[in-house]
Design a protein around this nucleic acid. Structure first.
Length: 493
DNA sequence: CGTCTTTGACCAGCGC
DNA sequence: GCGCTGGTCAAAGACG
């Protein structure tokens, strides 16, 4: 609630110069000579953060007025000269009361207009988030199709007519557009998530998802592959019963698994009614200090920043997994020279041999991120990002790279320790590994945007608080800049 | 009293 | 068809 208690790391990030807001402060917001401005310097900077919050409605003090000036100078609105004029000169003693009232009325009108503009901007942000979400799905689908095509080509080299088969699978326009039918099949995944939410009963999702998935795959298995059920396992050392990943979970079952004396616990996400995300937590039989958390499903609600770290990590892993048509294909992609010579995503992933392993025997395609071992020392995350960044095919790769290569390159570090929650005693290598995985994620900037908008919009700085997703309209309403598909996504429809 | 955890029972998938 | 296993349900108890 109180902006002053905002996490200093996040504040530092907001003013680090990486986010456009930094430009506002450094360039557009010219230092004002008026002593009145100086008097309100501190309050105005905070109001600026609070601009998107619906709570900041009154605009009844000077600080609020100055807020509009700041935002206006950012380029969203250039019609604020009037406000400046009205506010800047107080030395004229000849102003009568009527003139002052007129000015106040004009100011109020202007502020109402700005408020409306604020709503429009928020709507625009939502649309951008939506577009990004769709775009990411297309990229995922295209990437999967490419890998599958390569695999098919490899298989068909000994068979006649392989080129024809490949041509059938890879339409010429593949890289630029997805067919309308394919896109139509993409949307039901969201529909299903919404269905889960409306079903009320948590009983149905898994079984229904499996049934519908099987049915769809029978119809056209290739089109459905990106949204099969995938699981992401995260192995980390922890003494706690479960890893604090920022989400709120409810335990709904426990089972003794075969071959492991430690019971396996089943959790369901309770941050939103009907959220289909589940996780399994089990200690490693060989080393009980290692906790294996397996995520499955796709959150249907906004995530607090504290949850986006793990969500983005697992999302990146799931994307890596699902961009192959099967686990065997992935293995082949990883090992096949022909695949390696292509622009294979996996080939460029330096952590493959250290933290990411794929299970072909599991009932569902599963990728395991082993955070108990350090990454390869010669390729620290920063170097990896600049050298292996997903710029080749990710729409926002440049953003990722600019964020991570900038001189103020500790943005991820700024966020990560906080996002991983109060369980702060995390090994350095785990932090690095997670950071690298996060940065690999095409959702990373979206997650960042969600976190920032949460800070800006909510003013609720309790980022670890699960109530974060119901703070106010700016961050929790249906069209909020929610992190698109940001969690352990890619569950089957 | 509401929420969460525990735990035995139930169900579906899979292999033989 | 049968048994095994994983996953889930739901009643009962614990807890704040």
């Amino acid at each position: 609630m109180d902006e002053h208690t905002q996490d200093p790391r996040e504040i530092a990030f907001l003013h680090s110069g990486e986010f456009p807001r930094g430009d506002f402060d450094s360039k557009d917001h010219q230092p004002d000579e008026s002593s009145e401005e100086h008097l309100h310097d501190e309050s105005s900077s905070i109001k600026e953060v609070d601009f998107f919050s619906p709570k900041s409605q009154p605009y009844d003090d000077i600080g609020q007025v100055r807020t509009t000036i700041i935002v206006g100078s950012s380029g969203f609105n250039d019609n604020l000269g009037m406000v400046n004029l009205c506010h800047g000169t107080s030395s004229d003693d000849g102003d009568d009361k009527t003139k002052t009232k007129t000015q106040i009325i004009r100011l109020k009108l202007e502020l109402e207009r700005l408020h409306e503009e604020n709503h429009k901007l928020r709507h625009l942000l939502d649309e951008i988030s939506q577009s990004y979400n769709d775009l990411q799905r297309r990229v995922l689908l295209v990437r999967q199709t490419q890998v599958e095509g390569l695999h098919k080509q490899h298989e068909d080299t000994t068979q006649a007519g392989s080129s024809q088969a490949l041509e059938d699978r890879r339409p010429k326009h593949m890289n630029n557009e997805i067919s309308a039918t394919t896109l139509k099949r993409l949307s039901p995944e969201d529909e299903d998530d919404r269905d889960d939410m409306h079903r009320g009963s948590p009983k149905t999702p898994r079984l229904d998802q499996n049934k519908s998935a099987n049915h769809e795959e029978q119809q056209n298995p290739h089109d459905q592959l990106p949204f099969r059920k995938a699981r992401v396992s995260v192995r980390a050392r922890s003494d706690a019963t479960t890893v604090n990943d920022g989400c709120q979970w409810r335990k709904y079952g426990q089972k003794m698994a075969k071959g492991n004396p430690c019971p396996r616990a089943y959790y369901r996400c309770t941050m939103a009614i009907g959220c289909p995300v589940r996780k399994q937590v089990q200690r490693c039989a060989e080393d009980t200090t290692i906790l294996t958390t397996t995520y499955e499903g796709n959150h249907n609600h906004p995530l607090p920043p504290s949850a986006t770290a793990m969500a983005a990590t697992t999302s990146a892993a799931a994307a890596m997994l699902l961009s192959g048509s099967s686990t065997s294909n992935i293995h082949q992609t990883l090992s096949s020279p022909s695949a390696a010579s292509s622009s294979s995503f996996y080939h460029n992933f330096p952590y493959t041999s250290t933290i990411a392993t794929l299970s072909a025997s599991a009932p569902f395609p599963t990728i395991t991120l082993d955070l108990t071992n350090p990454p390869r020392p010669l390729q620290p995350p920063q170097q990896f990002l600049s050298q292996y960044g997903p710029a080749a095919f990710l729409p926002n790769a440049n953003q990722i790279r600019s964020i991570n290569n900038n001189n103020n390159n500790n943005n991820a570090q700024l966020l990560l320790p906080n996002l991983l929650g109060p369980q702060a005693a995390l090994p350095r290598d785990m932090v690095d590994s997670v950071r690298a995985a996060i940065a690999m994620d095409p959702n990373f900037t979206a997650a960042l945007a969600a976190a920032i908008s949460n800070i800006i919009g909510g003013g609720n700085n309790d980022n670890n608080d699960i109530n974060n997703n119901k703070v106010d309209g700016a961050s929790s309403n249906g069209d909020s800049p929610q992190l698109p598909q940001s969690c352990t996504t890619f569950s089957t429809n």
